[in-house]
């Protein structure tokens, strides 16, 4: 009984997740070694590793991998650094702090599609967009953000959405700082930079780990933001791996190649997971 009960309780969640993972995975493996083009249903049969070769030698492939990593890396750096800065800034009471908090957290609740459309049209449009008008006000030529700096634009959009999350975690972490310790360090003549270096930053270590972990889970597969703004373009300039698979599957109608790409994404996700467990898992165990 004592050994059985925990397993029974765990079973529903573990089993459903296992099915959710294994069934699509097996189907994907099967699709990836056959010819499976939705536009040419008459052609079928085993093709071995041809689909993999096609996906990996696709000139878009390396760009997509690099874009995925750039997007992930930059958004994490931006949200962590700016998030900590904002958390420190708003750490002490001032008039209207609660309203400021509410304003800061709001973008987190916005759905990616709205977020993307909002930036695409109202912020980054080269003629009527707010940014263009600010640029014009200062006498600069307006920039066509999504065409000229597509990946950068996506990074900005995604960062804007994830910054509240990071900020929120850091704000909460700061609330549990030992105030007496801070006071004592001040008495001993520590300046703000020293406090930052020896008290604040070490205290935030674990929350940085959490932010990196969660963002990694969600950012490896950014999709809606790209789908609604640049469509991966121009060319492949803002195509990440998730979007490349989508292009193969739905725009190229080639389920075989898309499945090969999906398996590659599984590998990429697992490499990231191992890396994550090494780096973050330990930190969380303490």
């Amino acid at each position: 009984m004592k050994r059985l009960l925990p397993r029974v309780l765990m079973a529903p969640a573990v089993l459903t997740l296992f099915l959710w993972m294994i069934v699509p995975l097996l189907m994907t493996i099967y699709f990836s070694v056959i010819r499976y083009n939705l536009m040419q249903p008459d052609q079928s049969g085993f093709v071995g590793l041809e689909n993999f070769e096609y996906f990996v030698t696709d000139p878009s492939f390396s760009t997509a991998v690099i874009n995925t990593l750039l997007l992930l890396g930059w958004v994490i750096v931006i949200t962590v650094v700016v998030g900590i800065a904002i958390a420190l800034l708003t750490d002490e009471p001032f008039p209207g702090r609660n309203i400021v908090r509410i304003l800061l957290i709001s973008p987190f609740f916005i759905m990616p599609t709205v977020n993307a459309l909002l930036w695409k049209h109202m912020m980054m449009n080269p003629i009527y967009g707010v940014l263009a008008q600010v640029w014009a006000f200062f006498g600069a030529a307006p920039v066509d953000w999504l065409t000229d700096f597509p990946l950068f634009s996506i990074i900005v959009i995604v960062s804007w959405q994830w910054l509240p999350f990071a900020t929120l975690i850091f704000v909460t972490a700061l609330q549990s700082m030992n105030r007496e310790q801070l006071e004592a360090s001040r008495m001993d003549g520590a300046n703000y930079l020293q406090q930052l270096r020896y008290l604040y930053i070490p205290h935030l270590g674990r929350s940085v780990a959490v932010v990196v972990m969660i963002e990694m889970i969600f950012l490896l597969s950014v999709f809606a933001e790209i789908y609604t703004t640049t469509g991966g373009g121009p060319g492949d300039a803002s195509t990440n791996v998730a979007f490349l698979i989508f292009k193969q599957a739905l725009l190229g109608f080639d389920a075989g190649v898309a499945s090969a790409g999906a398996l590659f994404a599984v590998v990429l996700a697992n490499v990231a997971a191992v890396f994550l467990i090494r780096m973050v898992g330990k930190n969380l165990d303490k």
Partner: peptide, 25 residues
């Protein structure tokens, strides 16, 4: 801990990877 990490790793795979099978199902 392994089970927990395995669960999280299923989340790291881009949903698009499972699109074709899930759509078919």
């Amino acid at each position: 801990k392994d089970i927990l990490m395995w669960m999280l790793s299923t989340k790291m795979m881009p949903a698009v990877g499972a699109l074709v099978p899930v759509y078919v199902m």
